[in-house]
Design a protein around this nucleic acid. Structure first.
Lengths: 116, 116
DNA sequence: TTCATGTGTAAGGTTTTTCTTACGCATGAA
DNA sequence: TTCATGCGTAAGAAAAACCTTACACATGAA
């Protein structure tokens, strides 16, 4: 069985939780995720039109979702030879509670720490 | 029975979800929440010392948590007459999935909309 | 070739967030 | 009074996020 990206439950990597939160804390990116969850397949130019934002802007937001691991991308060749970049949701479940936060904050680098 | 601030499950106010995400998407604020969940009571000057940040900085982050409704504050008078501002966690449960996001994005104002 | 489609990214400006320093005001104790 | 504690907030710098415009490259079709 394939597991979802279970965030903040058992694994509890503070940095990962933080990345997911930052990635989702934006209206455009929430809309992107929402679209990608509608059962259809979407490539980036198409998705940009659907959401009503420019392609470079979508690319920027897409990048954050990719880096957080919430979205994956796959380049495909269409029938007429165009290279289409299809986006897919990485199934995730972010479950946050004061208690779960208390737990996963322990794995956060200290305030002045650079993580080295 | 008193309910938690159930975010993104049934209520699904897009703006509220967004506010909660933005409020939590910061390492200092995660630490604040974590501290407030340790069972002790904390007033702001004390909390700032515990976390290791300046009081004005804590005040700033505190503000975001207050506005998102994740934290409440209550002014109390100590035995020696000082006014202490005690912070408390509003019990919350943020459960986010692609599907739940798809649902609550519907209640988000349109991209160019100012919400009026 | 020219056009319409797709891909990416760099440069620059605006806006927001983040943080520090410096105020001002109140209290009780020394 | 002076000091240590608590409270809040304003002003300005620094950093990060956000967004637009413009570029470069590829393909198939007209």
């Amino acid at each position: 069985m394939k597991h979802d990206l279970q965030i903040a439950e058992t694994t509890c990597d503070g940095a990962q939780v933080l990345a997911a939160l930052a990635a989702l804390a934006n209206p455009h990116r929430l809309r992107i995720v929402a679209r990608l969850a509608d059962g259809e397949r979407h490539y980036v130019s198409q998705l940009a039109r659907e959401i009503g934002i420019s392609r470079p802007l979508l690319h920027l937001h897409m990048q954050k979702l990719l880096e957080a691991g919430l979205v994956t991308s796959r380049l495909e060749l269409s029938d007429d030879g165009k290279a289409l970049n299809y986006l897919e949701l990485a199934p995730f479940h972010l479950s946050l509670t004061a208690e779960s936060i208390r737990h996963c904050v322990k794995s956060l680098p200290a305030p002045g720490d650079t993580g080295e």
